[in-house]
């Protein structure tokens, strides 16, 4: 018990960081599902592409000498905006080219297409990376080095950056969905496409906007990931995407606030397990079993609440 207590502050910090990342990626899954009932498996790879694009931009800006003379926060904003814009267009393009022609096909065919797009993106990023260096693992320059130490607790500056930016992105999305005209159109399209089109809403345009916003956020999250963890490869999107999707299901797929809460919860559970699993099970399970622990919780939740923790809500099909 003292072990649990002693590690708690660090668990909270690491769990919130990871959870914030899951949460924002989960938003991308949930928004697209809410509108098209499509599990966009390529979304994890959008996140990964964001990590690489962000890193490339950061390396480029370093080469130009900008990073040395400008405030880190300004550089971060610049990288986030460029990356978000590019991954947003990437997501929009994928919908336009790969999913839209299949709109009337069975869900299974679209799902398999999404998996195909995932592999394609992994290989493209790997190929490009290998033309630049001789392997595909990349180190991201650290933009916010160093850490605070408060009574034995290690708080990295980049943690603060991840948390603050993540929260700002979630608040911005909430505002967009609930307070703007296009957010209103998005919710209407999620509920009834035909009737939305009778209200002069161009449904295809709304779907494009949804992919843009979800993918821009996903790509920006890739930047946060790269800056915080420092090492990326073309396959980070797979397991992270899977977990973020899990978080979306945990919160109730299609529900925006549910995705945020589900992501945070999953991150915290995972870090809790990593720190304490060995102590709790008297050495039987090492911390490597953290995923088993987190997914066991997920399964339990879904047994008792198949619609997810936050049921159905904000964006939903009728």
């Amino acid at each position: 018990m003292t072990q649990v207590w002693d590690t708690l502050p660090q668990v909270l910090i690491d769990g919130l960081t990871l959870g914030a990342i899951y949460a924002i990626i989960a938003l991308g899954y949930t928004m697209v599902y809410g509108i098209l009932e499509l599990i966009n498996f390529a979304h994890g790879e959008i996140f990964m592409a964001g990590a690489f694009i962000g890193t490339a931009v950061l390396i480029g800006l370093t080469g130009l000498g900008w990073v040395a003379v400008m405030p880190a926060i300004f550089i971060l904003l610049l990288v986030l905006v460029i990356t978000g814009g590019l991954t947003g267009m990437l997501g929009m393009g994928i919908e336009r080219l790969a999913y839209r022609p299949l709109r009337k096909a069975s869900k299974l065919i679209t799902l398999i297409t999404a998996i195909g797009v995932s592999f394609l993106l992994q290989d493209i990023v790997r190929f490009i990376t290998e033309t630049q260096q001789n392997n595909y693992i990349v180190n991201t320059p650290s933009l916010f080095p160093g850490s605070l130490s408060i009574s034995g607790l290690n708080i990295r500056y980049s943690f603060l950056v991840v948390i603050i930016v993540a929260i700002l992105m979630m608040v911005a999305l909430e505002f967009f969905v609930n307070r703007t005209k296009w957010g209103l159109a998005m919710r209407a399209v999620a509920q009834d496409q035909d009737t939305a089109s009778l209200m002069s809403v161009n449904v295809n345009k709304v779907i494009s906007v949804t992919f843009f916003v979800g993918s821009a956020l996903g790509g920006a999250t890739g930047v946060l990931f790269a800056i915080h963890y420092g090492t990326i490869d073309p396959y980070i999107g797979f397991i992270l995407g899977l977990k973020a999707f899990t978080a979306a299901v945990l919160g109730g797929i299609g529900n925006i606030r549910g995705a945020m809460a589900g992501g945070m919860l999953l991150g915290l559970l995972e870090m809790f397990a990593a720190a304490n699993l060995s102590a709790i099970t008297a050495g039987l399970l090492s911390s490597e079993y953290k995923d088993v622990f987190a997914f066991a919780i997920l399964i339990l939740v879904l047994i008792f609440r198949p619609e997810g923790l936050f049921g159905r809500a904000a964006i939903e099909k009728v």
């Binding site: 209103l184 919710r187 509920q191 009737t195 009778l198």
Partner: peptide, 25 residues
Amino acid sequence: AHVPEGRRIFPKLTVKENLQIGAFG
């Protein structure tokens, strides 16, 4: 304007939002 059969109100939008979406253009 086409008021569809079965009314097709957006159930999860407020009444005000239902009116606002009518003026989307």
